[in-house]
Computed example of a mutant assay.
Amino acid sequence: MVRLGACFLVLFFLVVLTEAASPEAESSKKAKCKVEKYKHCYNSEHVCPKVCPGGDCVVDCKSCKPICKCDIPGAVCQDPRFIGGDGITFYFHGKKDREFCLVSDSNLHINAHFIGRRNQNMKRDFTWIQSIGVLFDSHRLYVGAQKTVTWDNSIDRLALTFDGEPIFLPHGEGSKWQSKIAPSVSITRSGNTNGIIIEVSGNFKITATVVPITEEESRVHNYGITKEDCFAHLELGFKFYSLSEDVNGVLGQTYKRDYTSRVNVSAAMPVMGGVREFSSTGLFSADCSVARFGQGGLSASHEYANMECGSGFNGNGIVCKK
């Protein structure tokens, strides 16, 4: 009986040690509440749910719980999976090697360049967003993921330019760049590498993270990713401060008060159509058929500025319901 008990004790310690050393345990990511007004939660650290793509999450400061980044309204992740301003999840596949209009308003236009692979057994491409081009005021901002063969998160694969000039942002969480010609524009690293927060005061906030397609993802979804290219792409989060009621674009249209979702919400994969409607001729071309950039528009920001948002973020661009 003593020997049997000793065996169980040894087995228990082996299981504990194995779990502690497993890659899953080592790769657990954490997040903190960074909104000071939520004193009960501010600066508290939480382990991200394992179901989060890439393990990335944010903390809902109001409820003081971690939420997957890709589950917040305004998020654009994966194949591209959008969560609209109305909170409804949908997919917009577009086409590889083409540009599509995500948001178009009187003083903001965002295009995305799609990369992808063709699955011969399907009628569409597998697609991901490789870069975005942002037009606002008289400025142009480029954010892109550099092509990568083998992924190493310690190597920064972000490419950034502002009005055509490269932005050099030192490695390290919290490193910040601020435009000298447009002081309202800043970019801050959200991690040591491959993650940034872009803010333009009074206009918008964008989070962008470069991520690869992993071998496991490729196997599960039959992407056919090879060792020549891990298809590094952007996962994005948008928050808007001054959208008008005339805003349009794949994502932008979902922020209208009178918007009715065009997707079949009961489908396993609700797909948004409109390849022709949202197609642009270039990353900085505001020429999609629904373009609004440069036109006048009645701002709706005053109606939403003080709304309390369920995810712990303030502003109409993340979680405010209509």
Results as ranks from 00 to 15, higher is better:
G5M: 07
A6T: 08
A6C: 12
L9S: 08
L9R: 10
L9T: 13
L9K: 12
F12L: 15
F13C: 13
V15Q: 10
L17D: 11
T18A: 13
E19F: 12
A20Y: 13
A20G: 03
P23I: 00
V35T: 13
E36C: 06
K39P: 00
N43K: 13
E45C: 06
V47Q: 11
C48T: 01
K50F: 03
V51C: 09
V51Y: 08
C52S: 07
V58E: 01
C61L: 04
K65V: 09
P66L: 02
C68N: 01
K69Q: 09
P73W: 00
P73N: 01
V76Q: 01
D79C: 02
D79V: 01
R81I: 00
R81C: 04
F82D: 04
F82K: 02
F82H: 08
G85D: 01
I88K: 15
T89Y: 03
H93M: 08
K95T: 10
R98K: 13
E99D: 15
L102C: 04
S104H: 01
I110W: 04
A112C: 09
I115Q: 08
M122F: 14
T127G: 06
T127L: 08
S131T: 02
I132A: 07
I132S: 06
G133D: 04
V134L: 11
V134G: 05
D137R: 12
H139G: 07
A145C: 05
K147C: 00
T148W: 07
T148V: 12
W151D: 02
I155C: 07
D156W: 11
D156C: 11
D156F: 12
F162P: 01
E165I: 13
P166I: 00
P166Y: 05
G172P: 08
E173N: 08
G174T: 06
G174F: 06
A182R: 10
P183R: 09
P183D: 05
S184Y: 03
S186F: 04
T188D: 06
S190Y: 10
G191E: 14
N192M: 09
N192P: 11
N194V: 06
G195I: 05
I197D: 12
I198C: 02
E199F: 04
V200I: 14
G202L: 14
N203Q: 11
N203D: 13
I206S: 04
T207H: 12
V210M: 06
P212I: 04
I213N: 06
T214L: 03
E216Y: 03
E216D: 07
E217L: 11
S218G: 11
N222W: 01
Y223V: 12
T226F: 12
E228P: 02
D229A: 13
F231Q: 08
G237A: 10
Y241N: 13
L243R: 05
D246K: 12
N248K: 05
L251S: 09
L251R: 11
L251F: 08
L251V: 13
T254Y: 08
T260P: 01
V265G: 02
V265F: 05
A267G: 10
A267C: 07
A268I: 04
A268S: 15
A268N: 11
G273Q: 12
G274Y: 06
R276H: 12
F278A: 05
S279Y: 13
F293W: 08
G296A: 14
G296W: 06
G297A: 11
S299K: 08
S301Y: 06
H302M: 12
E303H: 14
A305K: 15
S311D: 15
G312A: 09
N314H: 14
G315M: 09
G315C: 11
G315T: 10
I318G: 01
I318R: 09
